[in-house]
Design a protein around this nucleic acid. Structure first.
Lengths: 164, 164
DNA sequence: CTTCAGAGCTTGAACGCTCAACTATTGCTG
DNA sequence: CAGCAATAGTTGAGCGTTCAAGCTCTGAAG
């Protein structure tokens, strides 16, 4: 199976690579979540849901599509959408083509909340992530991460961009 | 309206880079957590705590050191260590040099649990992460992530290599 | 030696996610 | 068209993290 190196332990270099990757990702996520919580009072994951809904036609999506797109369970989507409905940011509509299904639809208020939050979020993302990345670094990182994704179960399902 | 995510000043390429990075990291973490839960019944984060304790002199660490090393809050450490104590994997000792402090000490059972779990975990880590990475990719990734870490608050605290 | 700001850690409630049922609908098969 | 497996989604309990207090102890200053 694997390349002929260590069986059950990582080399020193591998360990360092893994820890740098894991630590940077976790620290980055935590920082951005804190920023979103402080600036907009959003629970973790809320911003992502709003973005994905906003990118969908008519701001509407089936619950299971939302689950796939956000890499989360149907149950989480049910609970998360319920909170968004309570906030007035999302409305639920029964699906016309499948009586089992429901659509989550972004309201104007939800759209406004996203628009109000996005600039600051992008600012933070730049400050913490892109500003330390050269153009070549970014290209490398993208290729490497897309490779990792391609080898992961479910990694390709909504990888993002239609082109290439 | 069609996607009005406009005011985000991220370019298409930047967006794709960020999403590849975020998605690969989250999917990877989720997969490894599931593996650890299935194989060893470990709650997320438990394995990391055991590893960090095992690397410490005498398998002992102050609570606040554990919090820093795992990028988590003192409160989380209190609760997490309590669960480890209940499992018999850790013991608590009052700190001799500071009566406010406590040491979490890895027990033989805790060490055994780590040893029993590590091979499979490393196997999964290889399968999902390293096997898709060329030597150059790994080197690039490490440098890039260490750069990101260096620019992040708290990123340098334990980002380097303890053992080298 | 007293005082007091701050460090180290804990506590309990609130919150979000997970997991295992469970209901309702669909689509296939005979 | 009856039966049945699979799909879509919900529900509620259990678990782990977060957050805001709160307690004890330390170190330094007066």
């Amino acid at each position: 199976m694997a390349t002929a190196t260590a069986p059950t332990s990582l080399s020193h270099g591998e360990l360092r690579t893994w820890r740098a990757f894991a630590r940077s990702a976790r620290l980055l996520f935590a920082q951005l979540d804190r920023d979103l919580s402080r600036d907009a009072g959003m629970a973790p994951g809320t911003y992502e849901l709003l973005v994905i809904l906003a990118e969908a036609p008519d701001g509407a999506m089936r619950m299971n599509e939302l689950a796939e797109a956000t890499l989360s369970s149907p149950s989480r989507i049910t609970h998360a959408v319920e909170r968004l409905v309570d906030l007035g940011w999302v409305e639920r509509t029964s699906c016309p083509s499948d009586r089992r299904g429901w659509l989550a639809v972004l309201t104007d208020a939800g759209h406004a909340a996203l628009l109000a939050t996005a600039p600051r979020h992008v600012e933070h993302l730049r400050a913490h992530f892109f500003d330390g990345l050269s153009t070549e670094d970014a290209a490398h990182l993208r290729r490497i991460c897309e490779n990792i994704l391609a080898r992961l179960p479910n990694g390709g399902s909504a990888g993002g961009c239609p082109g290439a």
